[in-house]
Design a protein around this nucleic acid. Structure first.
Lengths: 343, 343
DNA sequence: CTGAAAGCGCTTACAG
DNA sequence: CTGAAAGCGCTTACAG
């Protein structure tokens, strides 16, 4: 019995190719235990090699592609990224399932023992990290489906990831401040180990070095991508002997924290202190004063993530592990020229 | 042929009960058109009455319940509501599908012609409206699955909806301002036709009337639940002969707009103007000054929505069409006593 | 532990 | 338009 092209393998075909009866193959498929271990192994191998799928599974696959979007929390960036994903999903006729990522990956699928195929459709996985937490993504890679990570805390080789040009963004934010005449510019960063934070910081360093300015150790502070870090960070910077005239915050949350604390201390932004954020969230747009921020193309990142995932689902080669979309500096009210008295 | 309890109807059973052959029933199930219209009608009726489901459909139903969450946009409230839904979904082992609601309801399902059963599982639908848009929900009700609407623009009878105590919230916001000594209090409302807006406004009116204060027509302005409405609204109020000393904004977006415009005009909040928002979003927490706001229990609203939906999916009676969770006034920095000079 | 045989539920080509 | 008959793909009770 040989399969002609386009023909799907049947139970009978598998049985014949292993040299057992259809009954035995059926037992293996149904997870019964009255099958010798060796026989079972042979049959599973043959099923896998032939790409056998039960009629039910085939029917499942007939419908639209299902992509799971796993979140590990809610950041200000998320709605826009999600919007991009949903928009593209609707264009491509793809279904989106939503789940909260537990570090250990989807649990329910793993507790079926000898059934080799899952009975629920999931063709690919997009992980949208909040970038505020360094959870391990490896268990998710163990799945045999394509995975794309959006804006990862750390991009790991082997996983396709979508990010923005963090280095260039950090550099343009800093250059903007330099052009306004600032010389003592602080970097209120994210977690030291976060790759996106490192890239933003190196962009900052690069701009300073190009202007012949040394990096003052006390003016670079790492912390979490949270409002509280901005509040505490400003307090720390103000106590420094090299009190900065401008701050580049590693994300908009931190920047908003700076804004809050500045307001409390009656420090005027931008008159007394210039401030640049990162992300380009709606929050930055609506803060008072409106925040100058390095905008990530969040919607496009969502769109790109789904497109890259679908290409993998369809078996295409991507040619790269990493997509970086360009950031753009959006100048609003929180940055201004250094005032003579400040220096 | 009679079905004993617990036995599922087969094709043969349906055929026999209608008095046709299995072939004909099979044709109807597969949407073939070589069946007389009258026969088809009879068979469809019998299938429906017997609750016939194909083996594939039965297998589909064996897995976890699938709930679709349909969004019609992204508001500041959405992430928290979604968080509540996902949290509960994970507790209950329910799968969540996400889609963008097009006013006309899911399209793809409707273009199969004579196939009476959809081949994709969807046990219930939660619609999360942004409350900024009055789209018609009736097409979604046409689905034969339970529907729950969260925070609807207008609650319609026949659809289960989850909301907050908008009237009580509007009243407590206004009472708070009255207690601070304010007498000329404006209401910067949402769309006049929006039910939640009306409830909030009537709460406002009620508090004023109880204090023996007449409602000044010029101090009640309706508009969209958007930042821009806050900006324009403040401008309009300032031009009024009865310039208010306090504003109750119908949501946090509007309030943020007021904050922006006040800042631009160098009007200090709360010294020159007190301001209360509605929703209790993160935005309100992080604005400068931090916004006093009537908080909706957004997470609980999400949780309640999913729970109410699951009860319906499981065939329980809800006993009510409307769940209202209590709002709570969160006092922050944007409200303060009237200053003598203001009055 | 294995498989021949009976059977289930559904589909399809085709005769009428 | 309808249905008897053949058949498909899979499962199961049971003999060995």
């Amino acid at each position: 019995m040989i399969l002609s092209k386009g023909e799907r393998p049947t139970l009978a075909y598998i049985a014949q190719s292993v040299g057992v009866s259809t009954s035995t193959v059926s037992k293996v498929l149904n997870g019964r235990d009255d099958v010798a271990a060796a026989t079972r192994t042979d049959i599973l191998e043959a099923l896998r090699k032939a790409g056998y799928r039960s009629p039910a599974q085939r029917r499942l696959t007939a419908g639209p592609i299902v992509v799971e979007v796993a979140l590990d929390g809610f950041s200000a960036c998320l709605p826009t990224v999600l919007g991009g994903i949903l928009e593209t999903a609707s264009e491509e006729g793809v279904d989106v399932r939503l789940s909260i990522a537990s570090g250990s990956g989807p649990k329910r699928d793993s507790d079926r023992k000898s059934q080799p195929m899952p009975n629920k459709r999931r063709d690919g996985l997009i992980i949208v990290t909040t970038a505020s937490d360094d959870s391990d993504l490896t268990p998710l890679r163990a799945q045999s489906i394509p995975v794309v990570v959006v804006d990862p805390f750390n991009s790991r080789s082997g996983v396709v990831s979508i990010g923005a040009t963090n280095w260039a963004g950090g550099r343009s934010a800093t250059e903007h401040l330099l052009n306004l005449g600032h010389r003592r510019i602080a970097y209120l960063g994210g977690p030291a180990s976060a790759e996106c934070n490192q890239a933003r910081m190196h962009g900052y360093c690069s701009a300073l070095m190009l202007s012949g300015i040394d990096i003052t150790p006390g003016l670079v502070i790492h912390g979490k991508f949270h409002v509280e870090h901005g509040v505490a960070g400003l307090a720390e910077l103000l106590a420094s002997p090299n009190r900065p005239t401008a701050i580049f915050a590693a994300n908009d949350d931190i920047a908003v924290g700076v804004l809050r604390e500045a307001h409390r201390r009656r420090i005027r932004v931008p008159e007394d202190l210039s401030l640049v954020g990162f992300d380009g969230t709606v929050m930055a747009e609506n803060s008072v004063p409106a925040l100058t921020s390095v905008a990530q193309p969040l919607r496009d990142m969502g769109r790109t993530a789904l497109r890259a995932l679908l290409r993998q689902v369809r078996g295409e080669q991507l040619g790269t592990d990493r997509f970086e979309l360009t950031t753009s500096l959006v100048i609003r009210e929180s940055t201004g020229p250094v005032i003579a008295g400040q220096t």
